[in-house]
Design a protein around this nucleic acid. Sequence first.
DNA 1: GCGACCGTGACCAATATGACCGCAACAGTG
DNA 2: CACTGTTGCGGTCATATTGGTCACGGTCGC
Lengths: 233, 233
Amino acid sequence: MTDRDIRVLVVEDEAIAAEAHAAYLGRLTGFVHAGTVGDGHSALRALATAVTAGQPIDLVLMDMTLPDLHGLDVSRRMRAAGLTTDIIAITAVRELHIVRGAVAAGIVQYLIKPFTYSTFAQKLVQYRDFRLQLGGLSAMTSQTDVDLAFASLRTPTELPRPKGLSEGTLGAVIEFLKLQTVPVSSSEVMEQLGISRVTARRYLEHLADTGSLERSPRYGTPGRPENEYVWRR
Amino acid sequence: MTDRDIRVLVVEDEAIAAEAHAAYLGRLTGFVHAGTVGDGHSALRALATAVTAGQPIDLVLMDMTLPDLHGLDVSRRMRAAGLTTDIIAITAVRELHIVRGAVAAGIVQYLIKPFTYSTFAQKLVQYRDFRLQLGGLSAMTSQTDVDLAFASLRTPTELPRPKGLSEGTLGAVIEFLKLQTVPVSSSEVMEQLGISRVTARRYLEHLADTGSLERSPRYGTPGRPENEYVWRR
DNA sequence: GCGACCGTGACCAATATGACCGCAACAGTG
DNA sequence: CACTGTTGCGGTCATATTGGTCACGGTCGC
């Protein structure tokens, strides 16, 4: 299913934005810019011809504010036409009230303008991972497997800093972890940074939950296994 | 938006299962069982009349195997009719290949039969939280807010884990077993994962008891027969 | 003085260890 | 050939050990 690149159609009426999206796409591996259209009806036509040409679109980057139709209407018409193409919505802040309908229309991701390249890349990489995970779904039989696949689509990589964590300490912990080449335990973080083990764990766990850290138990010694952490990339 | 109960329509052709779902619903606060239908066309009719009666359905628990239409078709027709009702799909294991289309049809959750009450409750509570979060979204303006709302809908559920077993170790053991093509013994798991034989056996036995693993004794060598385990697909 | 953040210590949980038990293969004896 | 003791290895259990977890209280800044 995903042994080839993901073909992406950009639906955006502003030429500058459309070019930016295409350029962003070019910087990501696994994606191919399959074309750009400026309004809803053109999008529907383009999707149909792509199917008849044997090169169906896999993903649509759809701006919600189009000259003829609303992006949500385009999505609904796509569904009515039987298309299962995935859609990532691009919307301005003032249109947030349509998030609700977007879920029902089968929109997989939501990008709020203006966005940076890293945000854009993050969302598309998540989508790519989701497809990869679904690709191996034939062998999956459990609720957990499906949950995991869905989760890879909709987990924010950047949680806001919860209560009990301070900016300064968090920065220090991150900085320390980035310098390490081998996994470190909470005790080592405690020693090196001069903070208590409990505090060190608070920050390490938060970073692990948000996906910045890889967490794995360390065995071999008697006693409860100790978690060790590595900075991801 | 969510200052009232969530009205739920059960679409299920087997009477026993339908009753079970309704009963489960009754045990959850914030949900109201708005009716039960046994096939796709009845579902579409019921949804339409609910709208004209001024009491629209908020959520459909849709079995995928229906006597007249496939649940996925019913979902598509709902979208084509302009309904933004949310859908939780209920499916058997052998239908897993339709997960892909389900996303595009705007299906928010996936339940695999047979499921326990706790799994059921977990999914519905997640959905309720999602609605609550969206309800307060009018004042929100950031990408993070939308991400959080979406995440509350699709976070991975951790499988129930009896005492004495840790999340990380269980995951490691499962991962290792999935990679094996031939049955492995507890000693082999011990060596490869660097854990003690006793620990390895605790996890293997648990997985075998819950049905994830096939267990059989291995003879031929001197000494007490050794159990060997295979991941069950 | 109030909230946010961190430390402390008691308690809980998960693991390794080692002694002991059970089972099957093996070898020797009748 | 049958029976029996021996041997070797994995399963089982109790215990020690260590880190994780939680609730509370202190301290610092606003």
